[in-house]
């Protein structure tokens, strides 16, 4: 399932996939795969993404 919340949060911060990837030390393709729903990140990576985007786990990864 696509993670539209994460994509929106990234756009909110005016960050490209590459810029976000650079901040949290992963590849751009990993960010792309998470946003497309092709890859389920571990809780550690979820937390790093949340910190980089100033969001909570619920904001980005909890399905409504």
């Amino acid at each position: 399932m696509k993670n539209t919340k994460m994509r929106a949060a990234r756009a909110e911060h005016d960050l490209t996939q590459a810029e976000l990837a650079d901040r949290i030390g992963v590849t751009r393709q990993t960010i792309g795969a998470i946003e497309k729903g092709d890859y389920n990140p571990t809780i550690q990576l979820c937390l790093r993404i949340c910190k980089a985007l100033n969001k909570t786990l619920d904001d980005l990864f909890w399905e409504d």
């Binding site: 030390g25 992963v26 393709q29 990993t30 990140p41 550690q44 990576l45």
Partner: peptide
């Protein structure tokens, strides 16, 4: 430099 978790 380390591989990220998806790469691993």
């Amino acid at each position: 430099t380390r591989f990220d978790e998806r790469q691993i």
